Amino acid sequence: MTPPLVAVAHGSRDPRAAATVAALLDRVRALRPDLAVHASFLDHAPPAPGAVLDGLARGGGAGAVVLPLLLTAAYHSRTDIPGALAPVRRAHPRFALRTAATLGPHPLLTAALERRLAEAGVPAGDPGTAVVLVSAGSSDASANGTVGAIARRWRARGWHGVVAAYASAARPTPGEAVRALLDAGAPRVAVASYFLAPGHFADKVRREALAAGACAVSPVLGAAPEIADLVLHRYDEALALRAVRASAAV
């Protein structure tokens, strides 16, 4: 039997966030109707991952794939999710749990970012436009470094320039990055929102970037087709890794 997919999102008090996760998972279900897909949230919204997994185990399920709906690997993926899974492992030792990789980094995310910029009126790879790639920011320097690396690779696709910025916990801020690019001679500066769902940070970035002179701010990634494809890619990847490990143990 195909194990269900239990998606774990960050969670937000903003109801738009849960609605966006629901829309994304509906798209995943449409792509693979035979796969049971469940939503869960680390904070601010029910259900919690442990509650979903406990219900599946008590219902006679053999296991599940836990998939972090997170754009970079940082504290939530390294600490919060394992912490949420630990009681399930103790209570149901025969319930097989596989944890997939975070969504990012992956080329499909870049494609989704370009889709959202195009929706905001910014053609992909426009040589007259510099881009500020804005993430939430993290106290984990490696997570911020991952976003910086995405920006550096993305620059090669024809843009006037691409730099990373952070909504919190790191510099530059979106406003600082926009002003720096304009001061350096960029004809136009657009902001690419590296957020899965709307909420406080996405709203803050939009206000700050437009006030600093950005010509456009893209919508959040949300239920973009590329994100749904990436969710299934990470699910399949987790199953394939499990199969390889099982074969190696024989």
Rank of each mutant, 00 (worst) to 15 (best):
160 H>V: 00
203 D>H: 14
166 Y>I: 13
95 F>G: 13
125 G>W: 06
149 A>I: 09
177 A>P: 00
105 P>L: 05
104 G>D: 06
173 T>N: 03
157 R>S: 13
167 A>L: 04
147 V>L: 12
147 V>E: 03
94 R>P: 07
116 R>K: 08
182 L>N: 05
139 S>T: 15
108 L>G: 11
119 E>M: 12
183 D>G: 09
138 S>W: 06
171 R>P: 04
171 R>C: 02
206 R>W: 08
86 A>G: 12
145 G>A: 12
95 F>W: 04
157 R>N: 10
94 R>W: 10
208 E>D: 15
92 H>P: 02
85 L>H: 04
76 H>G: 00
156 A>Y: 00
166 Y>T: 14
181 L>H: 01
115 R>V: 13
187 P>G: 01
166 Y>C: 08
90 R>W: 13
162 V>A: 03
82 P>Y: 11
173 T>D: 03
201 F>Y: 13
150 I>S: 08
172 P>R: 11
79 T>P: 05
88 V>S: 06
156 A>H: 13
114 E>F: 11
107 P>G: 06
163 V>R: 10
184 A>W: 05
96 A>W: 08
84 A>K: 11
105 P>N: 07
145 G>H: 13
209 A>F: 00
182 L>A: 05
117 L>Q: 08
198 P>S: 10
104 G>I: 08
133 L>D: 07
209 A>W: 06
100 A>F: 02
154 W>I: 00
87 P>C: 10
161 G>P: 00
91 A>C: 09
154 W>A: 07
163 V>W: 02
173 T>P: 01
122 V>P: 07
81 I>H: 04
95 F>I: 05
190 A>F: 08
162 V>W: 01
138 S>Y: 06
206 R>Y: 08
97 L>C: 00
141 A>N: 09
166 Y>M: 02
75 Y>E: 09
86 A>L: 14
127 P>Y: 02
92 H>M: 10
209 A>Y: 01
186 A>F: 08
132 V>C: 03
77 S>A: 15
127 P>Q: 04
199 G>M: 12
184 A>C: 05
114 E>T: 10
157 R>C: 11
81 I>S: 03
75 Y>P: 13
209 A>S: 14
185 G>Q: 03
163 V>N: 03
190 A>Q: 00
131 V>F: 02
126 D>V: 03
178 V>E: 05
99 T>V: 14
195 F>G: 04
192 A>I: 06
